[in-house]
Simulated scan of single mutants.
Amino acid sequence: MTTSALSPSAPSHLPVARQPIWTTDGRLHGHEYLYRSSLGRPAQVDRWSADRQDGATTAVLSALFHDGEPPGDTLAFVNVTRSFLVSDLPLPRVPERLVVEVVETVAADQDVLAGLQRLRSGGYRIALDDFVATPDQVAMLPYADYVKVDCRDLEADDGRLASTARGEGAMLVAERVSSSARKQRCTELGFDLLQGDSLGRAVTLLL
């Protein structure tokens, strides 16, 4: 069993939430793993300071990879901060299972772009989270294997966002799919993968 690059003293058995990601024809592609508080509740991590967000990512990675690999054999999507992209903090050495999901607040500076290239060369898959085609996100597109788009952002869009997202050949993931109508809309726009409460809610686990 593969060991991780995390500290041997990193805590395990922490609550994390797991939400499935499906192909449009109903096959399980992977899960996104999300930080939860010690009580197992959502914590609005995106509103935290950078160092606290680093800690949340570390907690999720520790829970998943401290004792080897997460359950099952599908891909594990985990939100990561800039610190993990530029090697200030370590990632588990399991590129065959881990999808590095770059949070939307990361700026595409020279060190980040070099880090993305290095990670892809090392076998890691890269996902861009909450893609809205900001200049920073567009600069990272050449390194992305997946681009995740909130399907609510598509409702007033004429298809340009999806077209931009797939411009470099990444697989498109529709997030927050909460109804059959949104699922149909995303399928019509050519999305490859679907994630949202109507397809499976995030369930808190103790790993």
Rank of each mutant, 00 (worst) to 15 (best):
A114H: 02
A162V: 15
K183G: 03
Q184R: 14
H66R: 09
K148G: 09
S49V: 07
A107R: 03
R120E: 01
A114T: 12
R166Y: 13
V173M: 02
G196P: 08
L61Y: 15
L89A: 04
L119N: 04
A43F: 06
I21G: 00
L189K: 02
P142R: 02
S12F: 13
L207S: 09
T3A: 09
S178W: 11
R93L: 14
S7A: 11
A127V: 09
M140T: 03
D67A: 12
L194E: 06
R176A: 12
L154R: 06
A63V: 11
R52H: 08
P92D: 04
Q110V: 09
A17R: 05
L141E: 05
R36E: 08
S163I: 08
G30D: 02
G40Y: 04
I126S: 00
A114F: 05
A202H: 12
V45C: 06
A144E: 00
P42W: 14
S87H: 13
Q19R: 11
V103M: 04
D51L: 10
M171N: 09
A59L: 08
L89S: 06
R52P: 07
R41M: 10
V173R: 04
S7F: 13
Q117H: 11
W48T: 10
T58F: 10
V138M: 04
G190M: 12
D136N: 05
E96K: 04
L39D: 06
R160Y: 11
V86E: 01
L161W: 07
A56W: 12
E32V: 13
V60G: 01
A139K: 03
L128C: 09
E168H: 06
D88E: 01
A202R: 04
S87G: 03
S178K: 15
R27M: 06
G115M: 05
T134L: 04
Y33R: 03
I21E: 05
L28E: 06
R201L: 15
G196C: 10
I21R: 01
Q19S: 08
L64A: 02
V106T: 01
S121F: 09
F65S: 00
M171L: 14
D192H: 09
A50V: 04
A59R: 13
P92G: 13
K183V: 09
T74Y: 07
L207T: 15
E175S: 14
D129Q: 06
P92K: 12
L64Q: 01
M1F: 15
S121G: 12
S180K: 13
D54P: 02
L194I: 10
V94F: 09
D54M: 03
V78R: 10
L113S: 00
K183P: 00
F65W: 14
P71E: 05
